[in-house]
């Protein structure tokens, strides 16, 4: 019979990995739901962010301070990418193909700069963990959870209560009508695209703090994060975090109490169940 300590530690582990899923899914969901961009390159950007954190961190910069460089750079990249998409009127489906190509280019660039070998950021954060009873809480994972919750809540509040958010939602629903009311849809889209890319940079920081890096890792979370985004609802700010934690905890409990190799079935089983039972929620 598994102990309570195992249950508690597995639950914590599921919440932490779910927070990373949510963080990776947040920018993807907003761009997909509000801009009609299915941005596969979001994963490549996140890993590029992780490598930049590694590089800057190895050079002596505190990993958290690297955000001061990575976030503005990624914001500009995201906005520029959307400008190109708008310039060439790339459709949602074509955006999937174009960003897949971009993903391959970023992967090749990462491999060219940092080689295919594994890289690892050794930071003092990795050595810090808190003990609560029998439960251990590592600081890097706690930071991931805190960032995921804070950013999801902030974006949810911005979308719900600010003029910026209302204008974005109005543009997503009926762009021409929103423009008739004076909404500058193009500028908002550039802004949101930049924010989405910056969110990938934040996810990259979290990946660098907790994982060993390799270029192929771009694809490690694609399937599960797509499931998270669809379960959480396209364009939702809180949905990916909630869906991520549900999937993360389900996977962790599967690993803790049955064969760990069954865990990957969880996310897709949940997605299929939702598609069958509540297709209108997607």
């Amino acid at each position: 019979m598994p102990s309570l300590a195992l249950l508690a530690q597995s639950l914590a582990s599921g919440i932490f990995i779910g927070a990373l899923y949510g963080l990776l899914g947040l920018g993807l969901s907003l761009a997909w739901g509000l801009l009609g961009q299915i941005n596969l390159a979001h994963f490549a950007l996140a890993l590029l962010g992780a490598y930049l954190t590694y590089q800057l961190g190895t050079a002596g910069l505190d990993p958290l301070a690297t955000l001061a460089i990575v976030l503005p750079a990624f914001f500009v990249f995201g906005a520029a990418l959307h400008w190109l998409f708008a310039r060439f009127a790339v459709s949602a489906f074509n955006s999937l193909l174009v960003t897949f190509g971009l993903t391959v280019i970023i992967e090749a660039a990462i491999q060219w700069i940092w080689s295919a070998d594994f890289r690892r950021l050794e930071s003092h954060y990795a050595d810090i963990r808190y003990r609560v009873g029998t439960l251990y809480i590592p600081l890097p994972e706690l930071l991931t959870l805190a960032l995921a919750v804070a950013l999801s809540l902030a974006l949810w509040a911005a979308l719900r209560y600010t003029d910026f958010g209302k204008a974005l939602r109005a543009s997503a629903e009926d762009a021409s009508m929103a423009q008739a009311f004076g909404v500058n849809a193009k500028a908002l889209a550039l802004l949101l695209s930049g924010i989405s890319a910056a969110l990938a940079g934040v996810a990259g920081l979290c990946i660098a703090l907790s994982y060993t890096l390799a270029p192929s890792q771009i694809y490690a979370w694609v399937g599960v994060v797509f499931a998270v985004v669809m379960l959480g609802g396209l364009g939702s700010a809180l949905g990916p975090l909630i869906a991520g934690i549900v999937i993360g905890v389900s996977e962790a409990l599967t690993m803790a109490f049955t064969a760990p190799s069954w865990a990957p079935l969880v996310s897709f089983s949940l997605l299929i169940a939702l598609l069958l039972l509540r297709p209108e929620k997607i």
Partner: peptide, 15 residues
């Protein structure tokens, strides 16, 4: 046993 490519070892470590 876990699938090749697994990145989350928290629950396995707890076991």
């Amino acid at each position: 046993e876990w699938e090749f490519g697994n990145r989350d070892f928290g629950a396995i470590a707890a076991r």
